[in-house]
Amino acid sequence: MNATRALAHRQPMIRFLGKRTTPATIDHTPHPHPASPTHELPNSFQSYRKKAQQHGPLNATPRALVGGHIGGAAGKNLGPIEAAKGLYFDRSELPQRFQQLSWTQAEMDLLESGGASQWA
């Protein structure tokens, strides 16, 4: 049996530079995200909601909001959802060169055999 050797001093591999200090002042004022397209903050939350879209327009008319929330009415009552130029919602809307290619029978047989039929 080997006896455990007691270590005299443990030296951590990480070296911390100086004592921990918190900044005297921290700026908590809102600022736009660096990647924002407009580089400015909205005037108010209401003005943001008028332009925002998530699963349909968020600025629905009161008659489309049943019970005060989206989902209480049919989707067609919320208004049209149009993708901007150059944007697509589904892969099937992409140009033909980007659409998924169909599998050939030889490729399906190769997959089903686990690749063994390629050398048979």
Score class of each variant (00 low, 15 high):
A8H: 04
H9L: 11
I14P: 03
F16D: 00
F16I: 00
L17E: 05
K19C: 07
T21R: 14
T22P: 06
P23T: 01
A24E: 14
T25S: 15
I26E: 13
D27K: 00
T29K: 12
T29C: 04
T29Y: 00
P34Y: 02
P34E: 04
P34H: 01
A35H: 11
A35R: 13
T38Y: 14
H39Q: 14
E40G: 04
L41C: 01
P42G: 03
N43G: 10
N43A: 15
S44H: 02
S44A: 07
S44D: 12
F45L: 12
F45I: 09
F45G: 12
S47T: 15
Y48M: 15
R49E: 11
A52K: 08
Q53D: 02
H55Y: 14
G56S: 05
G56I: 04
P57Y: 08
L58H: 10
T61D: 14
T61N: 06
R63V: 12
V66N: 04
G68E: 05
H69N: 08
H69K: 13
H69Q: 09
I70V: 14
G71N: 04
G71I: 07
G72L: 06
A73G: 13
A73P: 03
A74L: 10
A74C: 04
A74V: 02
G75P: 10
K76D: 12
G79I: 11
P80W: 02
E82C: 05
A83Q: 07
K85L: 05
G86C: 01
L87H: 13
Y88P: 01
Y88F: 15
Y88D: 00
D90S: 11
D90H: 12
D90R: 12
D90Y: 12
D90E: 10
R91I: 04
R91S: 06
S92M: 00
S92Q: 06
E93M: 08
L94M: 04
L94D: 02
L94V: 02
P95L: 11
P95F: 07
Q96I: 05
R97C: 12
R97I: 07
F98P: 01
F98M: 09
Q99A: 02
Q100D: 10
L101A: 14
S102D: 11
W103R: 09
W103H: 07
W103D: 11
T104A: 05
A106D: 10
A106F: 01
M108P: 00
L110C: 04
L111H: 07
L111P: 02
G114E: 06
G114Q: 03
A116L: 13
